[in-house]
Computed example of a mutant assay.
Amino acid sequence: MWEDLGEYILTITDKRPLKIAEIGVGKVDLVYQYLKKQDQVDIIKTDIRPADESVIKDDITNPNLDLYKDVDIIYSIRPPSELQPYLVKLKDLTNAKLIIRPLFNEDLNTGPRKMKLKNYKKASFYIL
């Protein structure tokens, strides 16, 4: 499923090089691992509590916008509902595409912004 999400992320734009940011990576970074192996993909991962030195410390409620300069795609896997509006705000500030993979059966908390449900192979997620 995680490789399917990574594969889909690569299909939504032909732009290369491609800059991607994973927000709130936590300790599991399977999509990141898939994407970083791809040619012409520059990817960062951020979290408020970095699990290791490969994660950049950033607070999505008050993001360091320099980290997201020229980002084409932002994605987040299982972000808490209270952080989802901040992901939409960052998407708007960067003009990037946004993908949220919520917990199973969790409703999104993106306010008036409606995200489109997308199924790709074994992956289900929302895109804006």
Rank of each mutant, 00 (worst) to 15 (best):
W2C: 12
E3Y: 15
E3T: 11
E3R: 08
E3G: 04
D4P: 08
D4V: 08
D4K: 15
L5I: 07
L5K: 02
G6V: 09
Y8D: 00
I9G: 03
I9H: 05
T11G: 07
I12V: 15
D14K: 09
D14W: 11
K15E: 11
K15P: 07
L18F: 13
L18D: 03
I20L: 05
I20N: 01
E22F: 01
V25H: 06
V25E: 04
G26R: 05
K27Y: 12
K27E: 13
D29E: 08
L30T: 13
L30S: 13
Y32I: 03
Q33A: 08
Y34L: 09
L35T: 00
L35F: 03
I43D: 01
I44M: 05
I44K: 04
I44L: 05
K45Y: 04
K45M: 06
K45Q: 13
K45C: 03
T46G: 00
I48H: 05
I48G: 03
D52S: 12
D52G: 08
E53N: 14
E53M: 09
E53Q: 12
S54K: 14
V55Y: 03
V55E: 00
I56R: 00
K57H: 11
K57E: 10
D59H: 11
I60C: 01
I60A: 02
T61D: 05
P63A: 07
L65K: 15
L65T: 05
L65N: 14
L67G: 02
D70T: 10
D70M: 05
D70P: 05
D72W: 10
I73D: 00
Y75L: 05
I77W: 04
I77G: 00
R78L: 10
R78P: 04
P80L: 14
S81T: 14
S81K: 15
E82K: 13
L83Y: 01
L83G: 02
P85L: 03
L87K: 03
L87T: 06
V88K: 01
L90P: 03
L93Y: 13
L93T: 07
T94N: 06
T94C: 10
A96V: 11
K97H: 15
L98R: 02
I99H: 01
I99A: 00
I99W: 00
R101S: 07
F104N: 13
F104Y: 15
D107K: 09
N109H: 12
T110K: 03
T110Q: 09
G111E: 12
R113E: 15
K114W: 08
K114C: 12
M115W: 03
L117K: 12
Y120C: 06
S124Y: 09
I127G: 02
